[in-house]
């Protein structure tokens, strides 16, 4: 029996060692390229060690837009500060993985004063976002990050970890030796189209508003704030503008935000309606384009930051 078990163990060690080494090599090759928050959608690769940032941005694509298309530098210039953006677009983001990224950021000895958490309503209600097995597929391989996912609050962890490692053998890693860079439009929305908005809602909420998922994600959001506050990080929630105003589920989330205000003393800003029907600031009905990001940063983000800094 002992010999049998030893052979099995040896087999697994050999296999895992081989997989890990190969994945590590693929990841190392990616590191050789000059990737930064503005030209890559991945977070592990751009997370430094022992550095300080004025703020951290979390959320889904609505957060990520503050870095895409070199917006990152524009925002840093306007705000005259340094920030790191962990927002994840393309259906890869959810509250659990934002928690994992925050935890990873802190465990690498980094610090920050505040978090701007950009709220996208589907992140609370769409279970498929939480279950997405491909959420970490473009992240470079790092045992510390693996550990954080393993011990973190993600659902469907086995598949996520498997995809995380296996993706290093996929074409884009093997052939280009680099992570994926999103090709996101930065045009101007041509016309306000109600049918398209309704279709968008349907795509975002395939099963309607899932209140079981909402309850789970409320707990996770509390856990995120708790983690931040333990490190003296101030958390501010922001709802970015859209052409149509509020998303379905908006009132439930804002109600929850009011509870959080009382529980944790956090700040919440709702800018859903500030650019209603102003197509020129959007590339679709709810994502700010570069002009929109610049305008929003100047008009709303800067005053918030200044106010908080002057406290």
């Amino acid at each position: 029996m002992t010999r049998f078990l030893l052979k099995i163990a040896l087999f697994w060690i050999l296999l895992i060692g081989l997989i890990y080494s190969a994945a590590k090599v693929a990841s190392r090759n990616a590191e050789r390229k000059d990737y930064s928050n503005y030209n890559i959608e991945d977070n592990v690769i751009i997370t430094p060690k022992n550095e300080h940032f004025d703020f951290l941005m979390l959320g889904l694509s609505h957060a990520r837009n503050f870095s895409r298309h070199r917006n990152h530098q524009r925002v840093e210039e306007i705000l005259n500060c340094r920030f790191l953006n962990y927002g994840k677009g393309g259906g890869d983001g959810n509250i659990a993985n934002q928690y994992v990224f925050l935890n990873y950021f802190l465990s690498r000895g980094n610090t920050t004063n505040r978090i701007f958490y950009v709220l996208s309503m589907p992140m609370f209600f769409a279970e498929r976002l939480d279950e997405n097995a491909f959420t970490y597929q473009y992240e470079k391989l790092d045992p510390l990050f693996f550990y954080h996912v393993l011990t973190g609050p993600d659902v469907n962890k086995g598949e996520k970890l498997y995809t995380y490692v296996r993706s290093k053998f996929d074409k884009h890693w093997r052939m280009k030796y680099g992570p994926w860079s999103a090709k996101i439009s930065d045009n101007v929305l041509e016309k306000f189209d109600t049918a398209q908005i309704i279709n968008g809602f349907k795509r975002a909420y395939v099963n309607g508003l899932e209140f079981d998922t909402f309850e789970k994600n409320k707990k996770l959001m509390r856990k995120t704030i708790d983690l931040a506050q333990k490190k003296d990080i101030e958390v501010t929630f922001i709802v970015t503008p859209s052409t149509f105003g509020e998303w379905p589920g908006h009132e439930h989330v804002m109600e929850f935000m009011n509870d959080l205000k009382k529980e944790f003393g956090i700040e919440v800003y709702d800018f859903s309606r500030v650019y209603l029907h102003q197509n020129e600031y959007f590339y679709d009905h709810h994502h700010l384009n570069s002009d929109g990001v610049v305008k929003f940063t100047k008009e709303y983000l800067k005053p918030i930051l200044n106010k908080q800094k002057s406290k």
Binding site: F11, L14, L15, L18, I19, E159, Y162, R166, F169
Partner: peptide, 19 residues
């Protein structure tokens, strides 16, 4: 023998469908 085992296991890992 072991090369075949590892190769097949790697094949499963890389191209298997785990859905």
């Amino acid at each position: 023998r072991w090369s075949v085992y590892v190769f097949i296991a790697l094949f499963i890992f890389m191209y298997g469908k785990f859905e």
